[in-house]
Design a protein around this nucleic acid. Structure first.
Lengths: 203, 203, 203, 203
DNA sequence: TATGAATGAGCTTTCATTCAT
DNA sequence: TATGAATGAAAGCTCATTCAT
C-alpha cells in the first residue's frame, strides 16, 4: 500500500475503456514515450492509443512538453513514494537498504513501462525545472541517509556518492538485464543481489 | 595505442575543416544526437554542423537511420576496443578489473559525447540487429571472463550477471554523476571507487 | 431619441452581467471582431467574453458567419437610423449636411467599436447578400438627396457620386485620423471640418 | 517609370510559370490576402496559387506574419514611390495636387489587388513596427507639404490634417466606388473630381 | 434552455529526402 | 562528386461545431 494511493497500480493496462480521459492520456503517453521516446511519438498517436480525439489532449495539457513533464513528475513521485513509504527509519541500515532495494525492484516489476520511461527521460532537455527538482530530492535524501549511517559506522567510511553510485547503478542495471531477458529475477536471485550490494555498502 | 586507430581521438572537436566528409558528418551527428536525441535532430542541422550540403549526407548514408546505426556501431566498437585493448589476459583478475575500470572511465572522459550518445541510444527502436548484436558481445565477453575467475575462486562464487550488473551499473552511474557535477572524478576518487567495486567482486 | 431604441447605447460596455444572452453575445462579438477581425476571433472566446457557454451561441446564431452578419446588420442599421433620424427634410441642404455630419461623428464617438467593425468588415466575403443590400441603401438615399438639391442649385452641378465620395470619404477619414490620435475632434475642429466639407458641396 | 523599378508592373498576373519563386509567392499572397484577408487565407492555398510547395514559402519567409509584412512594405513603398516619383516640387501646389491625385488613381487602376490589400490591412495587429513606420511617413510628408503651401496662402488657412482627411479620404472613397461599379472612372470624371477636390483645398 | 467537454478537420510549420545543377 | 533549393507528408496545435448532460 502507500504507493497505491497513487495512480501506479491503475496505469499499466493501456486500452481501457473506463477511466478519466486525463488518466487514459497519461497511460497512453507512458507506453509510447517509454517505447519510442518523446520526439519519436506523435501526439495523434497518443490520442489514438488513449481512445480520445487529438484535440482533447490539449484540454488536459498545454503542450506535448507539458504532458511529458506531468508524466515524469507523476511517476517519479510514485517511485519515490513507493521506495520511501513505510521506510524503517528506526531499524538498522541493513534493514533500510533491504527495504529500498525490494521496493525499487517491486516498482520496476509492477510498472515496467514507468521504469523504462523514467530511465529514458531523466535529464532530457524538455524536462522543466520542477521535474528536475524532484530528481534532485532523491539524491539528497539518499546522501543524508548514507551520511548518517556512515557516522554510526554502519556503512563504509566512504564518500556517500561513491556508494550510492555503485549500489544504485547496480540495481538499475540488474533490472535492465532482467528486462532484456539476460537474467531471471527470482526471489532467490533478488535476495542474492541484495546481499551482494549490502556487502558493498556495509562497514 | 589500440584505441587510437579508431576515430576516438579525432572526433571530440566538432567544427573541423579538414578530414573526410564522412567523418565530419559522423562527428556532427554524434554531438547533435548526444545532445538532442535522434528524433530531435534534423538532418539539415547535422549537415550544417558538418559543413556539408544536406544532400551529401545521403551519399554516405542511405538514411538517417543508417547514419545513427553507423554512428552507434563506430562508438560501441571504439568503446569495446578501448576497454579490451592490451587486456592483461595473463594477470590477476584484480588487475583485469582495474584495467577495465580505468579504460572505461578514460573513454568516458576522452569522449563525453560518445558516452552520452551510447547511453542515450542503447536499445532504441531504430537500432538494427547488427547494432544490437555488438551490444550483446560485450556482455558475453564479460560473463565468460567472470565465469573463469569464479572457477579460480578469484571472484565471488556468484552468478556472473549479478556481479556484472552491480559493478558495471556502478561504473556507468559513477560517470553519470560526474557528468552532472555531483562528483569530481579525481584520480584519488577513481581509485577509491575501483577498490570499492573490487571489494564487491572479489572472493 | 430615435437611435436609442436601438441597441446602440447598451453595447459599448462589454462584461455586463444583466441583459439578454443574445445581446451579450453580440456585444462580445462586436468588441472582438473589431479588434481582431472575423477569422482572427475564435467562437469560444466570444462565448467567454459574453459570459455564456460556447454552445449557447449556436442557439442564437446558426454559425459564426450568421453571427457576423447579424452583427453587421444590427450596426449598419443603427448607423443609418442614427444619421437619418430627425432628418431635417424640410430644411436647407446646408442644414441637412450639418445634421448628417454631426450624427455620423456622434455615432462614431459613442460607438467606436461599432464604427471600427463596420469599417473593417464592409464587403467581406462572408457577408451575405442581405447585409450587402443594406450597404447599398445608404448610397441610394444619399444620391437621391443630393440629386434633388442639385436640381435646386443648392449644391454643385456635379455628378452626385463624386460629391458623396469626396465628403463622405472625408468624414470617414477624419474619424479614422481621430481614432489613431492624429487629430483631436474638439467641437471647434468638427465645426471647421463641417464648414470645409460644405464648401466642397455647395453650389 | 520611376515606379517601374519596383515589382509593381510585374505582379498583377498571378499564375505565371516564369519568375522567381519569391515573387510568385508574393503575387499569390497579394491576391488571396486582398480577397480573403490574412486570417482567412491558409498558407497552403498561397502555395498552390504560387505553384510551389507549401514548405517552400518558409524558405523565403520566416512565418505567415513575415510574409504579410513583406507584402505590405513592398506595396506601400511601391505606392509611395509611384505617388512621389517626379513630384513637381517647384511647380504650383495646384500642379502638385494634380500629380498626387493622378498617380494615386493610376496606381489603384494598375494594381487593384494591391490597393485593396493596402486598404484592408493598414493598421492590422499583425503588422510590425517597421510596416507601421512606413505608414506614418506618408502622413508626415503630406502634412509638411500642405503646411508649406498654407504659409504661401496657396491652400486654405486650415489645419492640414483636416484638409488631408477630406481630399485623401475622398480619393480613397472615389476608387472604392469605382471598384464596386457605382461610378466609371473615365478621364473626364477623374478631371472633374480632381477639380472638385482642389476647390476644397485651395485658398 | 444552457452548457462546455469533446471532437476532427484544418491550420501553421518542420524536415527527411530528392534531384537539377 | 557535391550541392542546397524544393518538396509534401506529417508534425504540433487550434477551433467551429456538436451533443450528452
Amino acid at each position: 500500500m502507500g504507493m497505491n494511493v497513487h495512480p501506479v497500480a491503475s496505469t499499466q493496462h493501456s486500452e481501457s475503456t473506463e477511466g478519466g480521459k486525463r488518466e487514459r492520456i497519461l497511460d497512453a503517453a507512458l507506453a509510447l514515450f517509454a517505447e519510442r521516446g518523446f520526439h519519436g511519438t506523435p501526439v495523434p498517436l497518443v490520442a489514438e492509443r488513449a481512445g480520445v480525439g487529438a484535440g482533447t489532449i490539449y484540454r488536459y495539457f498545454a503542450s506535448k512538453e507539458a504532458l511529458v513533464n506531468a508524466l515524469y513528475r507523476q511517476w517519479k513521485m510514485a517511485f519515490i513514494d513507493c521506495v520511501t513509504a513505510d521506510f524503517p527509519i528506526d531499524k538498522t541500515t541493513r534493514a533500510q537498504w533491504s527495504h529500498v532495494f525490494r521496493r525499487a525492484v517491486e516498482f520496476a516489476q509492477k510498472n515496467p513501462l514507468a521504469f523504462d520511461f523514467l530511465e529514458l527521460h531523466h535529464h532530457s532537455p524538455y524536462l522543466d525545472d520542477e521535474s528536475r527538482a524532484i530528481e534532485h530530492r532523491v539524491l539528497t535524501l539518499a546522501q543524508s541517509i548514507l551520511g548518517a549511517s556512515r557516522m554510526l559506522h554502519a556503512t563504509r567510511d566512504e564518500e556517500p556518492m561513491l556508494l550510492i553510485s555503485l549500489v544504485w547503478g547496480g540495481v538499475i542495471q540488474l533490472i535492465r538485464c532482467a528486462r532484456q531477458g539476460m537474467l531471471e529475477l527470482s526471489p532467490e536471485m533478488l535476495e542474492r543481489f541484495e546481499r551482494l550490494s549490502w556487502e558493498a555498502l556495509r562497514a
